[in-house]
Design a protein around this nucleic acid. Sequence first.
DNA 1: CGTTACTGCAACCTACTAGTTGCACCTGGA
DNA 2: TCCAGGTGCAACTAGTAGGTTGCAGTAACG
Lengths: 116, 116
Amino acid sequence: MTTPVDLEDLAEITDMCGALSDQTRWEILRLIGVEALSASELAQRLPITRQAIARHLGVLAEAGLVETEHAGRQLRYRALGGRLSELARHLETIGRGWDRRLERIRSIAEEQASRD
Amino acid sequence: MTTPVDLEDLAEITDMCGALSDQTRWEILRLIGVEALSASELAQRLPITRQAIARHLGVLAEAGLVETEHAGRQLRYRALGGRLSELARHLETIGRGWDRRLERIRSIAEEQASRD
DNA sequence: CGTTACTGCAACCTACTAGTTGCACCTGGA
DNA sequence: TCCAGGTGCAACTAGTAGGTTGCAGTAACG
């Protein structure tokens, strides 16, 4: 079980979005979203070096988007879908907040206009 | 009405996440999520120059997260909550996909184990 | 019609990031 | 016990991103 982080911090949202703002990292996530893979295994399937991949995995791990699993002498990573859903829920809430406030302002403006 | 972009492209997701990976841009979004503001007005409320803010607004506009409105001689920006919700729905779908596949693999493994 | 306030563009600096190469260090298997 | 495959750390380079200053353009308001 992963610790249930509530993702209140703005810094945590920006970190996760930063981790998700790189196409190479999405390639990695796509692969380890299907099955757990090590950095070396990922390096065989992607056109960059193992070290670069390891650093990407570090970024993803710091954002909480992956978890690790030891398998013999290798360290396998898997993508955490629940974490992504958590971010999605927060963005949804914020987005609805923006539209709600603007609608309220708009309705006030219309009310004002109809009064004149 | 904004054009209904379906956000299929991976590049579009990475662009939006990139736009949302900066704390200053979140400050801007928070302000123009309440009321439409111009770059100059934002510069009065934030500790950076108008030019820096204008560039942030450019990034946000390219990601489709803001829309503009002319008011006299100034150009006001407002945050588009629907666009953020759109991104949220896609992330939610992707996240569920990861967990679903891993659960399937896990259940297959358990089935295999129970068969022996 | 002139002035003033707001926008837009360009150059520059600094810091960070994605990528590389190279090497040291384990640790598991024959 | 050896060694080979896997991981981790460090240094270096090129490109990009956030910030600044400065100036040119333009359109609204008195």
